[in-house]
């Protein structure tokens, strides 16, 4: 089992890369920064995904699929930071937490209503809601909280 400090460092490397580039590094890319062998780096990523942190790997692969609030797979929750669109959010709710990783910057969420198909737009900065179009937006999840970890992609 990877120690807590190494889990924190593994988390920070992936988080920072996703914030800067919009994509998650592969464990082989991270080994040098972690000061580990490639296999030890792979194990650290797996151990991180087994903590309560709600990220996950692509099924059957070693690639990071989701690393909240980001998704490494393009989703319909597109994130724009000060005019630059290169991120996807893990889900509609996580799109609302994106602002915490971009302090002082305006985050725009462009997504779609899963019933009507109508476009929705939200803008936030440091937790403050600057815009919601339309103003009637609601959120919904059908899976009870206690079951979120049983199948994270479908919660």
């Amino acid at each position: 089992m990877t120690d807590a400090s190494l889990l924190d460092r593994t988390y920070c490397i992936i988080r920072d890369e996703m914030r800067e580039t919009g994509r998650a590094p592969h464990y082989a890319e991270m080994a040098g920064a972690l000061g580990l062998s490639v296999e030890e780096s792979r194990r650290a990523v797996y151990d991180l995904m087994n903590t309560p942190f709600p990220g996950w790997l692509h099924p059957g692969m070693d690639h990071v699929a989701s690393f909240p609030p980001f998704s490494n797979v393009p989703t319909h929750h597109r994130i724009t930071v000060e005019g630059e669109q290169k991120w996807s959010a893990q889900c509609g709710f996580e799109s609302l937490a994106m602002c915490w990783l971009f302090p002082g910057r305006t985050i725009r969420v462009d997504t779609y209503c899963l019933h009507s198909g109508e476009p929705l737009r939200v803008e936030m900065c440091d937790g403050e809601m600057l815009l919601a179009e339309p103003e009637t937006i609601f959120g919904y999840v059908s899976v009870p909280f206690a079951k979120w970890r049983e199948n994270k992609p479908f919660a």
Binding site: G92, E94, S95, L114, L120, T136, I137
Partner: peptide
Amino acid sequence: MNLFRSEE
């Protein structure tokens, strides 16, 4: 965990 146009 999605967003919708309205409660309806």
